[in-house]
Structures are given as structure tokens and as C-alpha cells.
Design a protein around this nucleic acid. Structure first.
Lengths: 187, 187
DNA sequence: CGCACCTACTCAACAAATTGACTATGGAGG
DNA sequence: CCTCCATAGTCAATTTGTTGAGTAGGTGCG
């Protein structure tokens, strides 16, 4: 149900092809609504049929042709209506890693440490990427200036959410590693 | 794929029926691996067939009979193996609310404020529940004592993760509300 | 006494997500 | 020259996940 609106929201940034969207979903929207290319192509088809987006075929030389999609007025309206409504379902996190941690006792402590280490460096990497995106948003201005002047701040707020989440993950991993080390030293 | 291990991990706490598991998944495991009762019943059936868990029918008076499931040695081993391996897929967050925020510009600012307010109070509620669970874990001991003496600390670490996540959500919402207010006052 | 709600599930149907393979063309690197 | 990677997708099969209903006895409330 919500993939529909995730796609519409992505098209607020402007015209895009399915392929381009699959890239966007990989880096930005993937942070709160993951989708595979196949899901996107299917969804775009449906949205176009329902008149929420419009396709425009662009002939390309030395490349396969592509279809660029734009929001229609109807699409924009539907997205607006959706954005104003309270969410029907709460956020869902699905994390294999946490299952492993839940079940970690009785396995090799060293393996557990490695898991946390991996997660930590992954979170740090993500945080660094987020910070670069933030620089691009600000584009030289201070945050206060940006928040005062920009016409769209939604994407910036979700970015702040992502940054908050990942920096907290980093702190949590660091803490867990200290705890694990203390338990290891104690034996 | 991972629901399997989520169920096995839940059974580490001891024997449980499908119905009991559906309650556990609602409060604890739901935080990182949501599942509906139907999914659980299907999964339990499969796990029993594969010999990873064992069922024992308990006759009850004035209640429908229930089947209690326990981990077998095989199940315990498979779970251990899983817990040691690096995760095949990264954590996935699916959050309708964030789509709405991404698309919020061009809708009623008051509606957006209400969304954040709602999310905020929801996060605070969850945090309070987590803290109560934490009290139960500690059971009078200090955290340091608990972490030194307890045989299982996995569930405590995932709980800490949940607490970190929700308290960061609270801070993020508060910040967003300040920003929204400033934009509203500015007009 | 009737109604709603709790325990403890099962069944069927449907929607969504995932996986893997397949079609094309072009450019880069060895 | 050959292979791999990037663009720009499509198709089909399978697995997961979701929704709604049904069964059946028990408990609590007014």
C-alpha cells in the first residue's frame, strides 16, 4: 500500500525513470521504505494506469530507450492527502542482526564481537554518507538559514532522522563492545 | 527465512505455545522481527516437521488444549550456527510516517505538527514500557552486577538497542517540532 | 441472561516481496 | 578480442505476509 506513496514522494524531486528510481531507493528512500527494482517497475505501471503519474518515452542513442515518469496533478493531490493522514500502521524494523544478538549466549563470544564490529563500521559508513548528503542540502548555508529559506524541508527532516538513528547505533555498538570485553576479561 | 530463527530464539526463554509466542512477538520480538499469529503457527508447524522443535500437547480443563513447543538439540545447534554467521541482509526499516514527512511540504503545517506530536507520544510510551522490562531484568541489581553475573545478556543488549532507538526518536521529534514552530512563526 | 472479550487455535484467499533468469546495447579494461 | 559492468528493463516462480472468517469453551459485567 505504501510503496505507492513512496514512489510518488520520490517523484516530487522531479521526473525519473524506473531505473533511476531504483538507484534513489537504494540510497535515500531505502532508509525507510526499501524496494527492489521489480517492485518499482510494477508500481510505476500501476500508478500510470491510475493516472497518478505520466510516462514520457525518451529515445536514446547508444542506450536503450527509457520512460521518464512525472507526477500528475491528481498524483500530487493524492500524495498530499496521504501525507496529512495519520499513519495506519506503526514503523516496522526487521533486523536479522538483532535476532543473532538475542540468541548470542551459547555461541562463540569472539564471533559476537565480530558481528558488533561489522555492524559498527557499517553504521559509521552510513553516517558518513548521510553527512555528505547533508552538505549537499545545505550547500554552504548554515542549517538555520536552510531551515528558514528552503521551500521543502521534509527530505531534510527525514535525513536528520537517519543521522540520529545511525549515530545512536554507533553508540549502542560501542557500548555493547565494552560490555562484551568486560565479560571476556572476567573469565 | 529469518522468522525461523526468531521463533527458535524466542523458545530459548523456554517452552511456549503458539498463542503465547504471538504475545511475546507482540511485545518483545516485535521490536525487530514482527510476525502475525498466522505466520507463527505456520512456522511452528514447519519447525516441528524439521525436528528443530518438539510439541507436547497439554490437556486443559475449562480451556482449549494447547501444544507447547520446546527446542530440540538440533534446533539449538542450528540457532547457534545462525547466530555466529554474519547477517545476509542489512536491517530494513519500513516507516509510513517517514514517507509522510518526506512529502509534507505542500500540506497543512498543522497536520504535520500533529503527526510529529503523535509519534512523539507513541515513542515515549514505548520507552516507558522498555524501562519497565529493564527493571524486571535487573530485579534490584545494578546494571554492572547484572552484566557480570547473568548467564544470558543477549536479550538485555537488544533491549538496550530498543531504548537507544526510541530515546533518539523522542529527541528527533522534539527537534522537528521546534523547527516547524519556527517556520510557522516566521510567516 | 446476554454480550463482549479471552484463550487457543485452523483454514482459505489474496496481496506483496523476493529470486533468478533473460533481452539488448555500449563502453572500459586487460 | 573477450569479458565484465552499466543501462533499462521484462517475465515467471516461489516464498512471505496479510486479512477475514470460523470453531469452541470460559470468564466477567451489568
Amino acid at each position: 500500500m505504501s510503496l505507492k506513496y513512496a514512489v510518488l514522494a520520490a517523484l516530487l524531486e522531479g521526473e525519473a525513470s524506473g531505473y533511476e528510481l531504483s538507484k534513489v531507493f537504494d540510497v535515500s528512500l531505502a532508509n525507510f521504505w526499501p524496494a527492489t527494482p521489480q517492485q518499482l517497475y510494477r508500481e510505476l505501471e500501476r500508478l500510470a494506469q491510475d493516472g497518478l503519474i505520466e510516462a514520457r518515452v525518451v529515445q536514446q542513442e547508444r542506450r536503450p530507450n527509457k520512460r521518464l515518469f512525472t507526477l500528475t496533478e491528481t498524483g500530487r493531490r493524492e500524495l498530499g492527502a496521504f501525507a496529512g493522514e495519520p499513519p495506519r500502521r506503526p514503523a516496522a524494523l526487521r533486523d536479522e542482526f538483532l535476532i543473532k544478538i538475542q540468541a548470542m549466549d551459547g555461541t562463540d563470544p569472539e564471533a559476537t564481537r565480530a558481528l558488533f564490529e561489522e555492524r559498527l563500521s557499517w553504521a559509521r559508513g552510513k553516517l558518513a554518507r548521510y553527512e555528505r548528503v547533508r552538505e549537499r542540502f545545505l550547500d554552504g548555508r548554515t542549517e538555520a538559514e536552510y531551515l528558514r529559506d528552503a521551500e521543502r524541508i521534509g527530505p531534510y527532516l527525514t535525513l536528520l532522522g537517519g543521522i540520529a538513528l545511525e549515530s545512536e547505533t554507533v553508540r549502542w555498538c560501542e557500548r555493547a563492545l565494552v560490555i562484551l570485553e568486560a565479560r571476556a576479561a572476567h573469565t
